[in-house]
Amino acid sequence: MTMIELPVWIEWCIAFMLIIGATFALIGSVGLARFPDFLTRLHAPTKSTTMGVGSVLISSIIYFSVVDTFSFHELLITIFLFLTAPISAHLLAKAALHLDLKRVEQTQDLRAQSAADPDKPK
């Protein structure tokens, strides 16, 4: 590690973003390992991991802007991830529904009844 003297508050800022990002990514992966069926598992990585990596990239932007020159190109990866995460999640959910994967038993399936009887009590 090449240590460069930074102003203290900027160092705290970068460290804060790094810790937040790493924690959220870890929580997303724990959710991926823990949840009971595929459709619930899909929720954890698409949200938490995207946000975690996003804040790690923001901390990288701050670090290199202070240490080196003005550097914003990590923004490209952040925007790209935020644009593509919903698309891959949508495709995977569609595939799972097509294959009719096993769902946990407490899943409320409101597909048929909402078409037939919209005022049915939950």
Binding site: S29, L32, S60
Partner: peptide
């Protein structure tokens, strides 16, 4: 248990390793 789970795991793996690369970049400056 299913192929879809494995694809989802691979998707998460590449996002996490990308973040690891970025952190390595900060570490080496």
């Amino acid at each position: 248990p299913d192929l879809a789970d494995r694809i989802l795991a691979l998707d998460t793996i590449y996002i996490n390793s990308l973040a690891l690369l970025i952190i390595l970049g900060i570490w080496h400056g």
